[in-house]
Design a binder for these strands. Structure first.
Length: 214
DNA sequence: CGTTCGATGCACT
DNA sequence: GTGCATCGAACGT
């Protein structure tokens, strides 16, 4: 079942923790893709220097101030769309960044979308990605799922982009493969004292520290 | 293995 | 004009 709005209308750290093991689903032009969330980060309020709400309300961060259960998608480094889930009450700017998925539905589509665009230097072939690399990292998973700025502000209680409980068909090992762990957030230079990154320890789709490759 | 660095768009100052 | 909640190719060790 699709998670109700009340799921998001809670303390952000609770939402982040409970998102691990849930399934992110995107239906785009009849193409369905999904994956089990294995890594996420919380960004909480204007007092969190790493949160986009730190400068106060702006045009860009407006979705964070809006009602819970909506998507906040923004472009970063000019190339990557990163997707957040808006949490807590309107006026309380907070959200959870989805950082990695264990691919579930539409793996072939996702692999194709990943291989098409190549970042970094021009040229060369893209070798076939292993399934655990397809949605490893926040920029990679949005590309795989076809999530762009068009999905900014989308209602997660709708039928295009949403999150649901893992079905019975999901191999329990996808979730139980690791234990829940917390660490500082990745890729930021401020607010690193807060351990607001949650992930499944040892899961092969997890990026950065906590991933088995390290 | 490790580190560096370019690509690329746009909100913000 | 500056600086990103990134990624991966290319280089050095």
């Amino acid at each position: 079942m699709t998670l109700p709005r009340s799921f998001y209308d809670r303390p952000t750290l609770d939402v982040a923790r409970d998102l691990i093991g849930k399934v992110l689903v995107h239906s785009r032009r009849g193409t369905l893709t999904s994956g089990v969330i294995v890594e996420a980060e919380a960004y909480i309020g204007e007092s969190d220097p790493a949160c986009h709400a730190a400068p106060g309300p702006t045009k860009r961060n407006a979705p964070l101030y809006g009602p819970p259960g909506h998507a906040y998608v923004y472009l970063n480094y000019g190339i990557h769309s990163l997707v957040n889930v808006v949490t807590e009450r309107p006026g309380t700017p907070a959200g959870v960044l989805i950082r990695a998925l264990d691919p579930l539905t539409g793996v072939a589509v996702m692999r194709r979308r990943r291989s098409r665009a190549v970042t970094g230097r021009v040229g060369r072939r893209t070798s076939t990605l292993s399934s655990h690399d397809i949605c490893r990292g926040p920029g990679n998973l949005t590309m795989a799922m076809g999530i762009t700025l068009e999905q900014n502000c989308v209602d997660l209680c709708g039928d295009a982009l949403f999150i649901q409980e893992a079905e019975a068909e999901v191999d329990p090992h996808r979730v139980s493969a690791g234990t829940l762990a917390w660490s500082p957030r990745i890729g930021i230079s401020v607010g690193t004292d807060r351990r607001w990154r949650v992930y499944l320890e040892g899961h092969p789709s997890v990026s950065g520290r906590g991933s088995p490759r390290e």
